[in-house]
Design a protein around this nucleic acid. Structure first.
Length: 713
DNA sequence: AGACAGCCAATTTTT
DNA sequence: TTGGCTGTCT
């Protein structure tokens, strides 16, 4: 049966083998960038199974659904469907959600509870601030939510927060926090933070449930451990007792979510808290050349709060990273374009290249220059699928059907599409509901318009609304399928008509979004499962465009790799960001951000800055990033602005597109790297021309005409 | 109820 | 520069 033994450890280095096969007790794997941590995690699961541990006894936790899915797939490939189906591999939030579905009382919830995402939470906070008659301008909900959220990350209750207040602002936050928690319970809802926190508090208070999970989950694995907050760490600790078979994998140098409560001391202090812990460091990198790793290593050794380690690889020295100082942000973007053209000429393709920046706003100039040059690109991030208005509206309808106490959902849709229930009426309803201690939906159902103090006109509009919800709810009671309910919502609310009237230009796109939502719904087992999925999964993975380059923030780039990477905007104020210059720990996090950015590169790395740039409508003269200054001569080549000094590859003469191409479609050509092929297309672009060649051995490649070293055969 | 001008603030965001 | 929100006018 267990003939898998050798396979499980096959191709692993010594450290990795040690990590995979150290069975009992706490283990910390310090896994540098590109050191094969997912491999270690998946092989370890296979190893545990081979050692006779039941799949039911294993819980593997990740931060993202993507990582969880990837782990499931890879374990599946190793151990087959039977064992892998019984494994529990999920995100913190999904795992907690599942526990709460079985034991809603742990979080003072009732079954059918709603999961609030950040936007729902913000809205509820805003309502709370208003209802306490605080000024929402002086105390923006977003800021208050951030404070509450970081308190929750530290497992701090409103009462604990109230004790430690410094000044009026803190006092307000503590007051809002307490009211917000009550509102969540009243709405039968949990926010993301409370998914974890209520399980932690619930397990502490309920020995029976706690012991059940402790007995069941004997082997825990945690991915990206450096990103855990105190609450998540506490959850792991609780579940792991009494055996303490905790296997955590992470890299202190890649902790970039401190601003959201990630607590680096979880990983740094792991072996101090658990003296029996074994620490295994993975320092061999399988991604980058040593030239890139040397730059990364020198950069990150400037940080004090970290696990000391030095990455190395067997992938050769490689090209020295290039650092370019542009005159302005446009010049920087032009640098990216020209270097990109050379990369393409060398045989890199667009999908091999990524531009990474600190803030989303930086994408604009890059996009303009790339468009100008006719280079296809995609920007990762931006408005996410479930954040689109039409999606949120329809989901709010579905939510109110399942959980009538969800006032946030109700507020969203009570007058969407417009049905004559204005702000005044809504406020009146809210007040009336509050004094009766019921949700707004229940108030509508239980009391007459007169009792609620509503005008006859408002009463009529509300009656229509209540009837609408009642009709739709009957579908839920009859256990109709999620897509059918969704269809009926769209139909009965005349939502499509609204979309059309609203803005006929975008109507089609929004319609497509709804169709996509319906497709997701059709794959869910139930309406409840569908809603849960939409709450916990942020995006339907965008199909990777095979022929465009990628633009994204450092945060989005984490976990990814590209043959060639540009890191732009290396200026004090941008990277490190202005708002992160105050404390040493903020600066360290910014430095880790840059570390994450540069370690995405496999072969080629380009860094750049601009002497001045337009930013927030004004021209800024930022000094060069302190991080660049920290790097010694020799770890990169510095290029001056192309107008100064010797001609750089950046400004190599470009034949104008008007010149006739030296080859035509159908010609046979030769390339040093790809051999012989046939020219399939020649496309004129504003800056250059594109030549598409189909190589006999290497398939299709796209070159830029000015750069391509193609010889006619 | 809806349109529009004026004002203000402005990282990063796995769930 | 952008976007979001508020208050005012129709």
């Amino acid at each position: 049966m267990s003939t898998t033994g050798p396979q499980i450890l096959e191709g692993l280095n010594e450290r990795q083998i040690e990590a995979v096969s150290t069975l009992d007790g706490p283990v910390l794997v310090v896994a540098g960038a590109g050191s094969g941590k997912t491999r270690v995690l998946t092989r370890r699961i296979a190893y545990l199974l081979e050692q006779g541990i039941s799949p039911n006894e294993i819980l593997a936790i990740t931060f993202t659904n993507k990582a969880a899915r990837e782990m499931v797939e890879r374990v599946h490939d190793l151990v087959g469907p039977e064992a892998s189906q019984s494994l529990w591999i999920s995100t913190f939030h999904s795992a907690c959600s599942r526990i709460l579905r079985f034991h809603p009382e742990l979080g003072r919830l009732r079954s059918g509870f709603t999961i609030y995402d950040a936007d729902d939470s913000r809205r509820l906070i805003e309502r709370t601030i208003r209802s306490l008659e605080f000024d929402t301008k002086r105390f923006p909900a977003r800021a208050v939510l951030a404070r509450i959220s970081s308190a929750k990350a530290d497992l701090k209750t409103p009462q604990e927060m109230a004790i430690e207040v410094h000044g009026a602002y803190d006092r307000l936050v503590a007051t809002v926090y307490e009211a917000y928690e009550s509102a969540l319970i009243a709405n039968n809802a949990v926010d993301f933070d409370n998914l974890v926190n209520s399980v932690v508090f619930g397990l502490r208070d309920n020995p029976g449930v706690r012991e059940y999970y402790q007995r069941r989950l004997r082997y825990l694995l945690v991915d990206e451990y450096q990103d855990t907050n105190r609450a998540q760490n506490e959850l792991i600790g609780l579940l792991a007792e009494p055996e303490n078979n905790i296997f955590v994998v992470g890299d202190s140098d890649q902790s970039i979510y401190g601003f959201r409560g990630a607590d680096l001391s979880n990983i740094i202090g792991f072996s101090e808290r658990l003296p029996s812990a074994q620490t295994i460091a993975l320092e061999q990198n399988y991604r980058s050349t040593n030239a890139i790793l040397e730059l990364a290593n020198t950069l990150i050794t400037q940080n004090a709060f970290r696990h000391d380690k030095t990455l190395w690889s067997e992938l050769g020295q490689g090209a020295l990273p290039v650092y370019f100082v542009a005159d302005d942000d446009r010049g920087e973007a032009e640098f990216v374009v020209t270097q990109l053209l050379s990369l393409l000429a060398e045989g890199y393709s667009l999908r091999d290249v990524a531009v990474i920046y600190r803030t989303n706003a930086q994408s604009r100039v890059l996009e303009e220059e790339l468009s100008k040059a006719g280079i296809p690109y995609r920007v990762v991030g931006g408005v996410r699928f479930y954040d689109r208005r039409e999606i949120r509206d329809i989901l709010a309808y579905l939510r109110i059907l399942v959980n009538p106490d969800d006032d946030v959902a109700l507020a969203r849709i009570i007058n969407t599409p417009h049905r004559g229930i204005g702000a005044g009426t809504q406020e009146q309803l809210q007040m009336a509901a509050r004094t009766r201690n019921v949700s707004m939906m229940h108030a509508l159902e239980l009391f007459s318009a007169e009792e609620l103090g509503l005008s006859p006109r408002a009463a009529k509009a509300l009656l229509h609304f209540t009837e609408l919800i009642r009709r739709l709810r009957s579908l839920v009671i009859e256990e109709a399928q999620a897509p059918a309910i969704l269809d009926q919502v769209i139909l009965d609310t005349e939502y499509l008509e609204m979309i059309n009237e609203d803005d006929p230009l975008t109507a089609e796109g929004r319609l497509e979004n709804l169709a996509e939502l319906r497709r997701v719904a059709s794959e869910a087992d139930s309406l409840e499962a569908f809603l849960e999925q939409t709450a916990l999964f942020s995006a339907i993975d965008a199909e990777l465009d095979q022929s465009s380059m990628t633009l994204m923030t450092v945060h989005m780039a984490k976990g990814l790799e590209f043959p060639a990477v540009f890191v732009v905007g290396l200026e004090d104020g941008i990277f490190p960001h202005m708002r992160s210059l105050t404390t040493p720990s903020q600066i360290e996090e910014e430095r880790r951000l840059l570390y994450v950015a540069v370690t995405r590169a496999k072969m080629r790395l380009f860094l750049s800055s601009a002497r001045h740039r337009s930013f927030q409508g004004k021209v800024n003269y930022n000094p060069e990033s302190r991080f660049v200054a920290e790097l010694p001569e020799g770890v990169f080549v510095k290029l001056q602005d192309a107008s100064a000094g010797a001609p750089t590859p950046a400004r190599r003469a470009q034949p104008s597109a008007a010149e006739p191409p030296p080859y035509r479609v159908g010609d046979r050509v030769f390339h040093v790297r790809y051999g012989e092929g046939e020219v399939r297309a020649i496309r004129e672009r504003s800056v250059d021309r594109e030549v598409v060649v189909y190589f006999d051995a290497a398939g299709e490649r796209v070159f830029f005409g000015s750069m391509a070293k193609l010889k006619l055969v």
